[in-house]
Design a binder for these strands. Structure first.
Lengths: 206, 206
DNA sequence: TTATGGTTTAACCAATTGATTAAACTTTTT
DNA sequence: AAAAAGTTTAATCAATTGGTTAAACCATAA
């Protein structure tokens, strides 16, 4: 099953994609080099030939996984936009990107909780400084009494992120709770992309 | 370090508590029987003497972990209370319980995403039927036009759960983003317990 | 005291896993 | 065409891991 189209991609690429899939699904501890090799249809030795070790391979995978997803979102937060507009596009943009890479949130959260140091540094160096302007902007708005219930920035930000990310992390629960198949889940997300941007603005700004 | 108080608890209990800690922190795949034994200060063979296998031990841990946390919350959803009141107490109760068992959400989510079948069955049999009345209640309110934006029950419920659970799952991110230590995080949660119940009602019911 | 049954220990086992190696094969260079 | 460099394979390794076993230990009952 899943016989890849012709043999266009190089061995190195085949390995990377297989590794990405397996690491995303099973996490570092649960991933097996043999499974990655099988999925890539190559000899296990090739993994080490191209990537030296499991650690190195994993590092490549998560670096590229994060690099692909995070910058797009985070750059938006640096733009010179009114807070209301920024909130709206942040939610819409973020949801849209995750929809295309739905397994990344669980992947990040899992590794962040099992082996924090490995990924924490990435956040510290790549994310924080880009989110700061956004946080400042909320602080400012808060000072001007524009935030509902005068919530501090931390609470506003976490409410925001929670509502965006959690549905993807909690997908298995959701599917059980509402007897939802994958199609139903996608519809659920699409609906979310429609209403959540405005909804978030409404519940945040006054 | 962490020299347990005298030797009151039985070997079986010591094992269980050590296993709980290790499984919660590292997940099934990342957990090592030897580490559990070390943490319990007993010989590794005792693990198998009392619990036969890693699988069995894990099963006990998660069953008791879930059993301890979920029923209290879920029973509340069955009570005959007006929706507004129920929302409020649900949020308050849920947050309070998780605050006492802050590592359970990550644990459940991790296992649910890496090895769904193992825990999914528990949800299907223990949780769903208890949540159903609550969902029906929201549906009903929705029909009467009492829900903000006329959101369907699924969206309401996921928004609710997201805001309650995610902060604990995303703790490592939060701590980096806001340079928060563990004390700061607890204060953050305490603040949340104060305002979130009313906040949720406000953003859900009209 | 001495059987008896449950508990604990240390040594060991088989299977798995990440990793290495040397030879074979393929492509590129000269 | 021959050599060199790069790629792939199969065999193998050492370490780790979950699990077993048999003997030692210890409390309690006869």
């Amino acid at each position: 099953m899943a016989d890849d189209k012709p043999g266009k991609e190089s061995t190195e690429e085949k390995i990377f994609e297989a590794a990405r899939d397996v690491f995303h699904q099973k996490g570092f501890d649960g991933a097996r080099m043999q499974e990655i090799a099988d999925k890539a249809n190559i000899n296990k030795s090739m993994l080490h030939y191209y990537y030296r070790s499991k650690d190195k391979l994993f590092e490549q995978v998560y670096q590229l996984s994060l690099m692909r997803a995070i910058p797009k979102i985070v750059i938006l937060l640096n733009k010179d936009l009114p807070l209301e507009e920024k909130l709206r596009s942040f939610v819409r943009e973020y949801l849209t990107i995750i929809k295309k890479n739905p397994d990344i949130p669980s992947f990040i959260i899992r590794e962040l909780n099992t082996n924090p140091s490995r990924i924490q540094e990435f956040f510290r160096s790549q994310v924080v400084k880009n989110v700061q302007p956004f946080i400042d902007q909320i602080h400012e708005a808060s000072g001007e009494g524009k935030i509902v219930d005068n919530l501090p920035a931390e609470q506003v930000v976490i409410n925001l992120i929670s509502m965006i990310i959690f549905p993807f992390i909690g997908k298995p629960i959701l599917q059980i709770l509402f007897e939802m198949d994958d199609v139903g889940f996608e519809a659920f997300i699409d609906h979310r992309i429609e209403y959540l941007p405005d909804y978030v603005v409404k519940m945040t700004l006054k």
